[in-house]
Design a binder for these strands. Structure first.
Length: 94
DNA sequence: GCCCTGACAGCAT
DNA sequence: TATGCTGCCAGGG
């Protein structure tokens, strides 16, 4: 779990990572799914890291925090596609 | 141990 | 891209 948060902290400005990518980067993959666990972890302990740099594969941000995330991403210079993140250009892999 | 739920992903439509 | 369905897995009741 710490590793997830640690990795999120390493995400550079203007870049983002998808839940799946994080799970994958940490080899948390148990088939294809730790993405869910990553999401859960972020939901409960993401309050100390740049959580707005973590989005799902569609570039969508977490329910209830869209606005906030949008602002921060904008401030970070992340390429946005309307209300979503332009994954193609903002996706980052360690 | 069973069932439901969820900041998810991949594939088909 | 939107919607629907199916895997997959940890947590909680």
């Amino acid at each position: 779990m710490e590793e997830v948060l640690a990795l999120v902290e390493r995400i550079p400005e203007g870049k983002v990572m998808s839940y799946g990518a994080i799970a994958d980067a940490l080899a948390d993959r148990s088939g294809r799914n730790s993405a869910r666990q990553v999401g859960t972890i972020m939901a409960r302990h993401g309050g100390g890291v740049p959580w707005h740099r973590v989005v799902n594969s569609a570039g969508r941000m977490p329910p209830g925090h869209e606005q906030e995330a949008r602002q921060r991403l904008l401030a970070d210079g992340v390429p946005l596609k309307g209300d979503r993140v332009d994954i193609a250009r903002a996706h980052w892999m360690p």
